[in-house]
Simulated scan of single mutants.
Amino acid sequence: MAHIKASTLGNNFTIPISKGQFNIGIWQGIYPGEHRNHGGKRPLVTTIQGEGQ
């Protein structure tokens, strides 16, 4: 079942950042979630790429 959820919902997302701030609309939010019966601590991996100006 986990493979179906991962292939349907994906397992990563992109957050645009401009000038050190999240570049999302006023009514937009970031809501990562898990579909598990028993949660636990999970590592968060952040990859930053782009150009500095």
Rank of each mutant, 00 (worst) to 15 (best):
M1P: 02
M1W: 07
A2P: 00
A2I: 06
A2Y: 08
H3S: 12
H3Q: 13
H3I: 04
H3W: 04
I4A: 09
I4W: 02
K5D: 06
A6W: 01
A6D: 11
S7W: 08
S7D: 14
T8Y: 02
T8L: 12
L9E: 06
G10T: 12
N11W: 06
N11S: 09
N12F: 14
N12I: 03
F13E: 01
F13G: 00
F13T: 01
I15S: 03
I15H: 06
I15N: 09
I15C: 04
I15W: 07
P16L: 04
P16Q: 10
I17A: 01
I17P: 02
I17H: 02
I17C: 04
I17L: 09
I17V: 15
S18N: 15
K19T: 09
K19P: 01
K19N: 15
G20T: 00
G20W: 08
G20K: 03
Q21F: 05
Q21I: 01
F22C: 09
N23P: 03
N23R: 06
N23F: 13
N23E: 11
I24C: 08
G25S: 13
G25M: 04
G25P: 00
G25K: 12
W27G: 01
W27L: 11
Q28T: 07
Q28D: 15
Q28V: 00
Q28A: 13
Q28C: 05
G29W: 01
G29K: 08
G29I: 04
I30Y: 07
Y31V: 09
Y31Q: 06
Y31D: 12
Y31I: 10
Y31C: 05
Y31S: 10
Y31T: 13
P32A: 03
G33N: 10
G33L: 13
E34F: 09
E34H: 07
E34N: 10
H35K: 05
H35C: 05
R36I: 09
R36E: 06
R36V: 12
R36S: 05
R36L: 09
N37T: 11
H38G: 01
H38E: 10
G39K: 01
G39D: 09
G40P: 00
G40Q: 07
K41Q: 10
K41G: 10
R42V: 07
R42N: 10
R42P: 00
R42C: 04
P43I: 02
L44P: 00
V45E: 05
V45R: 14
T46W: 13
T46I: 14
T46G: 03
T47E: 05
T47V: 15
Q49P: 00
Q49T: 15
G50H: 08
E51T: 15
E51C: 12
E51Y: 15
G52V: 08
Q53V: 03
Q53P: 02
Q53M: 10
Q53E: 12
